[in-house]
Design a protein around this nucleic acid. Structure first.
Lengths: 209, 209
DNA sequence: CCACTCTCGATAGTTGGACTATCTATCATC
DNA sequence: GATGATAGATAGTCCAACTATCGAGAGTGG
């Protein structure tokens, strides 16, 4: 198909498709002449993925580039692939100063939590830093009772991760696994947030009616 | 204190503080003359909250304005306040077409889930729409095995909500409760996401080593 | 084979959000 | 009373994500 049909099928304007190709989110079509290219089913699928990551997942174009690059890179060892996929996903939102004593304290606190949960995680995992960032912010805002419930939240997170990994395990090849990790994390975060709101509404009504 | 000290204490540049006042994120200082105003401890606290919502929570300035407006509005009925706080928080990210048959199907699916979980939730809750959006995106991307694990995710979300409400219940007044709901949701989402990654790393190592 | 439409790729322009800079008429304070 | 800070207003900057235009070329119906 040509770009007009690709645009129609995906709902993405043609100039935007060109933009995505320029930004390496989408591979270019197969050239048939100087100014003609053919697009296939794969382009439609990829475009849907890109839009889902941008709109539902709230990622930036740069972050989407990293994600699709990870998906496209040839797999070498299942756990490695999952790790790479995770790095990509986690590194999406950071930005803060990481030298203050408060931050180091929060890091130590998360390390203790990891110990208590019996998790085995690298000391320098970006997820650890991210968790410490949030914890530090909560403490600085005087929300210590949240911080004190860390273990309860960690248990819930562990249950979620168990489900995640179950889904990943069922997948056949490494590519499908990486895809499951990435989509499960990015879209799964949004899904969990929404479900959490629903459960809150129910429980709050039950408690305060 | 004057604006220079407020800036020093909060780490926010003075022109940016003025900008926040213009955008109604921060109340203006108490005027002592035509070109002088006094700021207090409350301004420092509020600025920290604003920065946490912007940087850790990833909210837009407009969303922060809604959040602080909800915090400042006088409370009328505990459950009402929590509901308002939730609306504010959930309405943060939407944007999509809600008329297609796929979307209606996803909505029905979420309603079934709510039924199965025994949750009592309004038919038109924004959280329901948000969940349906994500579910629709997952199905459209061919990730049906995620969608099939909805109940497992819902159980985890319920456990999180139970902890959330426990924290809220311990708070004394309605203001503190609203604050707990808002911060717990916005920053809690980020915290849970990070903890989920940590648990995944552990479980993935266990499974594939 | 020719008018008309479409396409590619390059370049430039637009829009919105979040600041940041400058300016003026004041004040505070040494 | 010189120096420096301040409020408020206005305008400018910077970045991300598109969007518009253009020119040379290619496909296609009549």
């Amino acid at each position: 198909m040509r770009i007009a049909e690709l645009s129609r099928l995906s709902g993405v304007p043609a100039p935007t498709i060109k933009y995505y190709v320029r930004e390496s989110l989408l591979p270019p079509g197969e050239r048939t002449s100087r100014n003609q290219a053919q697009y296939g089913e794969r382009h439609v699928t990829r475009l849907r993925l890109i839009r889902a990551l941008l709109e539902v997942g709230g990622l930036s174009v740069a972050a989407v580039r990293d994600v699709v690059a990870a998906l496209d890179s040839p797999a070498t060892g299942t756990h490695k692939v999952l790790g790479a996929a995770q790095q990509t996903v986690t590194a999406v939102r950071v930005g803060g100063s990481h030298d203050e004593p408060e931050h180091l304290e929060a890091v130590a606190e998360i390390r203790d939590l990891i110990e208590r949960q019996g998790w085995k995680v690298s000391e320098h995992s970006p997820a650890l830093t991210a968790a410490a960032d949030v914890l530090g912010a909560l403490r600085q805002l005087g929300q210590d009772d949240f911080a004190d419930q860390l273990d309860a939240y960690a248990r819930a997170a562990d249950a979620v991760a168990a489900t995640d990994l179950e889904i990943v395990r069922e997948r056949g090849d490494a590519d499908a696994m990486a895809e499951a990790v990435i989509l499960g994390n990015i879209l799964g975060d949004a899904l969990l947030a929404a479900l959490r709101r629903l459960a809150q509404i129910h429980r709050s009504a039950e408690l305060f009616e």
